[in-house]
Design a protein around this nucleic acid. Sequence first.
DNA 1: GGTAGCCGAGAACGCTCGTTCTCACCGTTC
DNA 2: GAACGGTGAGAACGAGCGTTCTCGGCTACC
Lengths: 182, 182
Amino acid sequence: MPDARTQVLDAAEDLFYGRGIQSVGVDEVRAAAGVSLKRLYQLFPGKDALVREFLHRRDERWRRRLAEFVAQRDSSEEQVLAVFDWLHTWFSEPGYRGCAFINSFGELGAVSPSVVSEVRAHKVALRDYLGGLVAAAGRGPELADHLLLLVEGAIVTSAVLGDPAAATQARTVAAALLVRPE
Amino acid sequence: MPDARTQVLDAAEDLFYGRGIQSVGVDEVRAAAGVSLKRLYQLFPGKDALVREFLHRRDERWRRRLAEFVAQRDSSEEQVLAVFDWLHTWFSEPGYRGCAFINSFGELGAVSPSVVSEVRAHKVALRDYLGGLVAAAGRGPELADHLLLLVEGAIVTSAVLGDPAAATQARTVAAALLVRPE
DNA sequence: GGTAGCCGAGAACGCTCGTTCTCACCGTTC
DNA sequence: GAACGGTGAGAACGAGCGTTCTCGGCTACC
């Protein structure tokens, strides 16, 4: 049995990701976590803090899973392409609803600076991670920028159209960029 | 002096795009439009209808402006690249906050089917438009899919990072895809 | 000029939500 | 055994929101 804090965060992640942050009330998170309201407010000073923690934890887990998947490939070129294979399995998961960070940015980017900084940190970390992959393949950081565009584009397109095919399309473009330096 | 309906829609677009839909109350739209609440509810049966109209009108205007800009170029290849030039000027506008449709999808995609269909229609229309451009350049619809990924990726990345550079990066990739069939 | 309909301004209503307070209950400690 | 600190369940509070209602005034028409 996990501790109350992770129970709350698990419930918050399910609900915030699945329905949006403003559409989910604190009491619903409390009920899903099986925790009293008093305890929840002991663990988190307010909904804002809960949202920040939700984003922070999701960032770490998301990037860890991606990195673990990619690290299984041998060559550095294969590792770059594996990013898009992983995206395809993610897009195919039931309940996939795009990127929690892009969604949160669209919802709260104009009213919550802490959300903005969390989203920005996530995207910067992803770009840096891609930068490491392409550097290992002997390529410069411009390629990481280009791959980031493809990743973000695939995430958004697959979510809106409800079709994971964007991942394989992005992989095709990435492969073309890989074989031939521009 | 425009009629009350367009005044309301103009105000709604400013506010909904700038701050998010759920963060803006009907009364704030009413005040910005300089219209009585009674009149607003005569024109639109409720906030949902106002949101739908906001998205619908923004879709038409956005795609018209893009098409007008692109049509000024002569060759079909230049027209494809002009898409990204136009994106760059859009990203540089003050108050740029990403794509209203992506933002609305993130905010309400899980709770409002009408928003989902509006967002999906917008992206499909954009893909079809790109399909027309690449067909004129003698290329197949796969290139339109790839360009769509670049466009969406540039929109999201520039919004989150607050930097229009993603447009020129996407343009570079698009140029590489254009010169050489994969 | 009077009356009837319409309109703007804003109060009111009902609901939701984030947060705090109340209170009964339980385990621990002197 | 009694006082006590902490807990869970949920009521309460205050604010905000979408929507509707009220009322006073203006306009148009006979």
